[in-house]
Amino acid sequence: MQLTIIKPSVLSTIQDMGRWAYLSQAVPVSGPMDSLSARLANIALGNTEEAPVIEFTYGAAGFKVDTPAVIAYAGEGAILKFGNQLLPANRPIFIPVDSIISLQNSSRGSRTYLAIVGGFDVPTVLNSYSTYLPAQIGGVNGRALQTGDVLTSKENLTALNKVLINSLSGEHIAYPNWSVSKSAMGLQNTNVIRVMAGPETSWFDSSSVDRMLTSGFILSQQSNRMGYRLKGPVIERINTSELLSTAVTMGTIQVSGNGELILLMADCQTTGGYPRIAQVASVDLPLCGQLKPGDQIFFKQISQAEAEMLYIEREQNLQKLAATLHARFL
């Protein structure tokens, strides 16, 4: 299967579940900003977890299907349309040859994930398909997608891929009446982000920590795949020691020299030297990945044990979802 990018969005890149093997050489993880949506798009098609997808940032994008194709999309950045026909998210969709599909901006979020049966066929770089622009590695020649890029799907298909292709293929756009939805994963659209205490929380004045947990913070324009600068009350330090550079990860909330919060995201550095006041619970990172400049968020503290239980529950739900589809069709 093959498609051609007619118009890329502000930023469109190929991503998989991340480049984990070279962190000790300071190569960032990368991967989707909203990994839950990326995974749901793959699950809806019966793809493997590793299948590379396209991450579109906002809409105003489009592609042409050069061969009959079965795709799925998930996320909050855009709605897919064929002419005036809305294409539903979170389920496999058969698209006939030569159809032009557009991505129309959605106000609900910022990122949309497009999966194709088998996954997009790009080479692995350092054990991952993910695009990391600063080092120009992964995806399509280490760069963002451009008009005219031709993307094909891998030929190695799963049994479920084949069943879905056979059941949907025809002359017209076709999709089933079931879907794999985010709400079934226990994730509500909310602006309350759950966090755990960070390793350096005690470096901050307790009233500052209280303010962080009670005030709203607004995503600034200086926000990208590496991280978000958050505007809100200034966070004051009582311990002014220098933190020796140490590991940071997606969801780490650092406090910069001027008391501003920085929320690290998918392309963040492997290590950092700003004190870490909090850490976003992994289950809520997909919410963060859908934020856009101007959005307001609040933080709510939970314990490490609670965050871990929520994580295990989410992973088990995703496994069950994939197993349910297999049981239904195979």
Binding site: Q25, A26, Q269
Partner: peptide
């Protein structure tokens, strides 16, 4: 140590 950007 290595950090900051790949290979630094």
């Amino acid at each position: 140590m290595l950090g900051f950007v790949p290979g630094f």
